[in-house]
């Protein structure tokens, strides 16, 4: 294609992005500060807003590491071992993507609610899951479960076992092989997966609204706080909260992008770039 003929494609692509992302998100930013910075600041520093922010961060700090460890583990199992039922595990991983978050929430309520299979013994032991923080963490973990697996697995398959075997012949034990060879090889894919997981956890609404009970100041996360503010016609708080959430997500994105660039050869030949590397190629929905 000539440079000239690429123009229509670019215009279409950029217009699409502008219509769907830039304009709506931009107007949120605009509306948040419509009554001035001070009004926005006051709206998101109320005890309820701060609690919601704190809860969102706590949930992310628990659910994201959990799914990172689990995701890398499952990806390693699927990539490096042949066993019966591998296809089943592979398929199970994708269920949270296929099922609506509201259904995920309902399923958790059924299993872990006061009268549920696991809920009853847990309640007897004095542990409340549903309408409490553990339930929110669980719901967030379930809906964000596939992202690390799906961004790490193709990278593991692509790099193969040669480097790991080479490390073993050079005297590295399983732990050293993982930390010195496997982990550095998948770090780009992993950073991508962690970014997606974090973004999903921070932004989750459907599953969380079902399991949390949406109790202001207790089980209300940032997304629930925004939704409540909209219902209560407190638009400044809603937009300011939205901006805060967006900034949080952008921060995560920035940190992970820096991480991605940190290591590896700065210079690569064109031919080499095309044949490799550990960049995941996948599309995720959710």
């Amino acid at each position: 294609m000539t440079a000239r003929s690429r123009w229509p494609v670019r215009v279409v692509a950029l217009s699409y992005l502008a219509l769907l992302i830039v304009v709506p998100v931009g107007s949120v930013f605009y509306r948040a500060f419509a009554h001035g910075f001070v009004a926005a600041w006051v709206a998101i520093t109320t005890p309820d807003a701060l609690h919601a922010l704190w809860l969102t961060l706590v949930v992310a700090l628990i659910a994201v590491p959990l799914n990172t460890v689990f995701g890398v583990g499952v990806a390693l199992i699927l990539a490096r071992h042949r066993f019966r039922g591998a296809w089943l595990l592979d398929a199970l991983i994708d269920i949270p993507l296929a099922v609506s978050p509201v259904v995920v929430g309902l399923a958790l309520v059924l299993a872990y609610g006061q009268t549920g299979w696991f809920g009853r013994p847990l309640a007897a032991a004095g542990i409340t899951v549903i309408y409490a923080v553990p339930g929110i963490v669980m719901a967030s973990a379930v809906v964000s479960l596939p992202y690390v697996v799906r961004s790490v697995l193709p990278v593991l398959l692509e790099i193969g076992t040669d480097q790991e075997e080479a490390a073993a012949t050079l005297g590295a034990g399983p732990a050293a092989v993982f930390s010195r060879v496997t982990l550095p090889s998948i770090r780009r894919g992993l950073a991508y997966g962690v970014t997606l997981t974090t973004a999903r956890v921070l932004g989750e609404f459907g599953a969380v609204v079902v399991v949390s009970g949406n109790i202001t100041g207790k089980t209300q996360t940032m997304t629930l706080f925004i939704s409540n503010s909209v219902e209560n016609l407190n638009s400044t708080a809603a937009y300011a909260g939205a901006v805060l959430l967006a900034l949080l997500a952008l921060f995560v994105l920035a940190v992970m992008s820096a991480e991605k660039k940190e290591r590896g050869p700065r210079w690569r030949s064109r031919s080499d770039r095309s044949q490799s590397d550990s960049e995941p190629h996948l599309l995720l929905t959710g």
């Binding site: 040669d162 490390a167 050079l170 550095p184 770090r187 290591r263």
Partner: peptide, 27 residues
């Protein structure tokens, strides 16, 4: 493998892609 004290050169060399030549040899 790690206790056999053998040097193995793979058909496609299996270089550690994330390490420089020096770090590869030092591994």
């Amino acid at each position: 493998a790690r206790e056999r004290g053998i040097g193995f050169c793979f058909q496609h060399y299996a270089p550690f892609r994330h390490l420089s030549v020096r770090r590869n040899v030092a591994f």
